[in-house]
Design a protein around this nucleic acid. Structure first.
Lengths: 341, 341
DNA sequence: ATGAAAGCGCTAACAC
DNA sequence: GTGTTAGCGCTTTCAT
């Protein structure tokens, strides 16, 4: 009992060493799993550790190892609520899964607005984390630059808009959009519209580019009346679809550049009396399996989110281990045909 | 240029001291804003800090101060996606707002499943944070106990189900539900149904209790056919509403225990051909301002989320400063009448 | 007002 | 295999 008496502050390595009758170094070896320790001594140390409920002081350890064993997922946005986005929820889940077997910890940092972004930058520069995975959503974001200058291992989720030479993992958004659009054209659709994402997000840009490529490939001229910009939200998708129906009532297909927007677009489409996919064929970009709940299941472009997140952690951990190389990965997307359009 | 030559590792206090021509101690004083330093020396130090881009090493500082200046918001859940919940998004926003003027940092820790919960427990015990705000959603959660035993400053969001003597901030869920139900009864509604939350969440329990209290106050017997359990999601609300309409087609009012559920319930209600609030009056519990987007605006019970989060940080920071007292706050909820039911 | 010096708790050579 | 020792970068008495 006396050993736990002064429980004001937690026990140190020395106290464990004394109780176990060995030196600090040996305790350290046991705690860090070094094999060069006699089983006998090891047991004594383990007993002492258990009795004192010893937990190593991270600050002391990090001060010498220069490692914190934690990485940050930072979410940079101007004002919108990333958190409500099921896509983001999935990324978090996949990331913690990827780190589950590691002894790496994952912390989330939210940076809305300039002040918070600077706070996050400071946090990172002070050495709280070994590396960061950055989800920066809009082009005018300053955080990518701040973090790049902080000299901290960094992996971007999504290709940076400014073409900065930085490590990133992206989905083949253009390829997926192209495949989706081509699928509609091949099925005989002649008036293929699109609900795009915002022009300042890489996903919106690339998916629109893919749509255009498919049209060009098929020798179809682009009709501005068939293009409406959305904002990746359900409401935005509904608004864009409404605009499309007004401008081009004869459209017979639509490629919707995101999941939530697809839900909104479908609602408007059905409310207008059109049947799906009878009158209008729809292909959506499946960020997260939201569409799976829509009825009936539609053809979608699937993102390999699991693969992407494990690649991001791999690339990041490599940098943490000292790899200087700037690596880039673009994961293939694939068209999942769920009905005959 | 030579001063930035070896930019491999960041500059230390000594380097700044040498460049400024003062001692480490003085640099430390300047960096920490001590007033006991000659303006002249201060300027020299500031110049050196700027030139070297000096940033204090947090680990070294924390090792001696025993403070990290960061608190964690930990989200404990078994499997559901808290992240998709707009309520949670609002809490995060309010919390960072409350800490914006502080030099406290906020990190989010997601703990899904037992393994991650233990990882979070370890993270906290190792001294990475000065305190934690815990959003534990289900009753069988082990994290509250783990953290309580970790001796770390702790504030729960929501009253703990097991009545453990711990600091927490809660909304007056029972009072709000009671007011909502009473409002419906006073308006002359005779068949007041309810869509409850889960039985293992404090919010679900307390709001159901409030509903029952209101019935008892009015001398109305509770009818099991008028009670359906939801899961706080939109889909769950829709399912519960469907069940209610089947079991009690004559219901003329319903108290819905959460925002997303209200959206689902309204959809079902309207699809059934009933007018709202003509045929069926609806009052929902407004966790986040989702209902504001529903049409028409309905009467709701509003939670003072801003007040709650600032109370949580206040209570937590007090503990960090050494306050032992176990304090508890229950914030009043208020009925916002938006239409004549 | 400033500097010298003593640690904070830990890891990592280095000797034995 | 184990102990001794020297720091990691910082704050904080204590003299001056």
């Amino acid at each position: 009992m006396t050993t736990l008496a002064g429980r004001a502050s937690s026990p140190t390595l020395d106290e464990v060493a004394e109780l176990a009758g060995v030196s600090r170094a040996t305790v350290s070896r046991v705690v860090n799993g070094s094999p060069k320790v006699r089983p006998e001594a090891r047991r004594a140390v383990e007993a002492a550790v258990a009795e004192l409920r010893y937990v190593p002081n991270r600050m002391a350890r990090s001060l010498v190892t220069r490692r914190t064993d934690t990485i940050a997922l930072v979410l940079s946005e101007s004002d919108t609520q990333v958190f409500s986005d099921p896509f983001f929820a999935r990324v978090v889940r996949e990331l913690s899964a990827a780190l589950a077997d590691t002894e790496m910890n994952l912390v989330l940092l939210a940076a809305r607005g300039e002040r918070e972004q600077e706070k996050v930058g400071r946090y990172v520069r002070q050495g709280h984390v070994d590396g960061v995975i950055l989800m920066s959503l809009h082009s005018q974001d300053t955080l990518p630059r701040i973090l790049a200058e902080a000299q901290v291992p960094l992996v971007l989720s999504g290709r940076p808009l400014d073409g900065h030479p930085v490590c990133y993992v992206d989905a083949d958004n253009a390829g997926g959009a192209r495949a989706a659009t081509a699928h509609l054209l091949v099925a005989g659709r002649r008036r293929v519209a699109t609900v795009t994402g915002p022009r300042d997000m890489i996903g919106g840009i690339d998916r629109y580019a893919g749509y255009r490529t498919a049209l060009r490939d098929a020798g179809v001229a682009e009709d501005p009346a068939l293009v409406a910009e959305g904002d990746f939200t359900e409401a935005g998708g509904a608004a864009a679809m409404t605009a499309l129906l007004e401008r081009a009532p004869d459209l017979d297909a639509v490629f919707v550049a995101s999941d939530p927007m697809e839900v909104g677009a479908l609602r408007v489409l059905r409310a207008s009396g059109r049947s799906v996919p009878g009158d209008v064929a729809v292909v959506g970009f499946d960020d997260a399996p939201v569409a799976a709940t829509s009825d009936p299941p539609l053809t979608t472009v699937a993102q390999p989110l699991g693969e992407m997140t494990s690649l991001m952690t791999e690339l990041l951990l490599r940098q943490v281990e000292g790899d200087d190389e700037v690596r880039v990965r673009v994961c293939p997307t694939r068209l999942v045909v769920r009905e005959s359009a």
